[in-house]
Design a protein around this nucleic acid. Sequence first.
RNA 1: CGCGGGGUAGAGCAGUCUGGCAGCUCGUUGGGCUCAUAACCCAAAGGUCACCGGUUCAAAUCCGGUCCCCGCAA
Length: 313
Amino acid sequence: MKVIFFGTPDFAVPFLYKLINSDEIKIVGVVCQKDKPVGRKSVITPPATKTLAIKHNIPVYQFNSLKKDDVKNTLSEINADMYIVVAYGKIIPQSILDIPKFGSINVHPSLLPKYRGPSPMQEAILNGDKQTGVSIMLLDSGMDTGPILEQISIDLDSNDTYITLEKKVHAVGPSLLVKTINEYVSGKKTPVNQATSDTAVTRLINRTDGLIDWDKTAIQIDRQIRAYKPWPGAYTYINMHNKKLRLKIFAATFSEKQNKTKSGTITFNKAIEISTGKGTLLITELQLEGKQKMNADAFIKGHIDINGQMLIK
RNA sequence: CGCGGGGUAGAGCAGUCUGGCAGCUCGUUGGGCUCAUAACCCAAAGGUCACCGGUUCAAAUCCGGUCCCCGCAA
């Protein structure tokens, strides 16, 4: 079966890899976003899926927009049987989704209809869910509203970050996708419409979503740190040497202990304790602007003078 | 030429503006104290102040250049 893969970032790579190595499926094209400048030196870098595709001599397509007619013609000429979409990065017009005879299949890392939209994994962590999952579904014109072919649940614990959750998704998602495709194509799988309850849509995450509000509870801040790791990352600001410096927080734990000091106050007490709106956040790994990432112990050794200072917004 | 911070003992940092004995919090080693300890006291070892050149009686510090690390932005 000939398949075109729509996907762009690292998240899509394990899925593409699994499909390439699948016997029944032949990837005849990869559609991804354009090469973009990355890093301090603005090196033009191809998307992760493009790199993998080139390695396997698969044609790569990077359209400015999918709405143009010549795009439709180009894709039609490939005559693929199915499109598979994993984190492509843009909305794909219905006219394109309808081209292949088996339609277009999407992977969404949540238990749909819960957490439709762009940030399902982050939202599950922010809400402290004990469980999330992966859904394999047919694409329709709505935002993650298509009928579901298969779902699998994933357990979340209180240490999971976006990074570890992504690993869990990658551990089960790709093989579930291949299995579901084969069952669907051979008629063993019937799409089931999504339930109409609990259909809130997650929002696109901004850079500034990582800014910590110390008036929130320690539990909420801990979740924020885990959900936004590694991007955009949780951060706050601190005054040092008469400058306002960004302080990134990579890992923390929390305790119920309520400090009497104002929210955002730093106390060195073997650990870096920060007062919050409710409870105390214990920072374990952090990075000061211009410095390397380090653990709390090392940070305290060199910054004993900021004991008692306030973190700011 | 996108903006900015940094490189000083094993770790984390101050000192640089205003040139004048290489410092701080730890760690390590040895000793002491203690029923005991990650506590406390005493002592010691440990430095190419990133690299190259210049100015100076004198450079971590001032000037020129090079390399490396990092934050922001895109």
